[in-house]
């Protein structure tokens, strides 16, 4: 193969690779990005219904209730400023899940205003709180504003 032809092959392969990669990425990104929202944003109606999102906040003290017959747990996620959203899950809650502690739930908001979680995460130790939830709680005096802007 002549040098020029070889260069063309390299360029062509590179182009195919870049194009293929961009196609795959744009396709795969669609619908697989889960934005984090605060309870405030949910109440303000900023959260699209039926779309996979994450909800972050504190688990309200005394709000955890379990079903007697099925594996179902209900709890309230709050930002300690009066904004509260009820979460329902049919999954096992993690070891670190506790009332009064932070949690991030992944799931969908349905028309009944309840957040149905496919997965509940809790990450904390004595003094650690997920950075993301910290931001949710910090916005104490800022105007009503979702944690995320890019909701599209």
């Amino acid at each position: 193969m002549k040098a020029r032809q070889k260069r063309m092959v390299f360029v062509a392969l590179g182009l195919v690779a870049v194009m293929g990669a961009s196609f795959l990425i744009s396709k795969a990104m669609k619908g697989n990005l889960a934005y984090l929202y605060a309870p405030e944003a949910v109440l303000a109606g900023d959260v699209p219904q039926g779309k996979l999102i994450r909800l972050g906040g504190l688990v309200k003290e005394g709000s955890l209730k379990r079903s007697d017959s099925a594996l179902e747990a209900r709890f309230i996620v709050t930002d300690n400023r009066g904004h509260e959203v009820t979460v329902v899950t049919h999954k096992i809650l993690p070891d670190l899940f506790k009332e009064g502690k932070s949690s991030v739930s992944r799931g969908q908001l349905k028309a009944d205003g309840i957040f149905y979680a496919e997965e509940v995460l809790a990450k904390h130790d004595a003094n650690y709180m997920p950075e993301e939830v910290k931001d949710v709680l910090k916005k104490e005096h800022s105007p009503a504003q979702p944690v995320t802007e890019g909701t599209k």
Binding site: L33, L36, R54, R106, D135, T148, E149
Partner: peptide, 10 residues
């Protein structure tokens, strides 16, 4: 621009 997570499906 917000906090997102990229899920395993990606």
């Amino acid at each position: 621009m917000g906090k997102i997570s990229v899920g395993p499906p990606y």
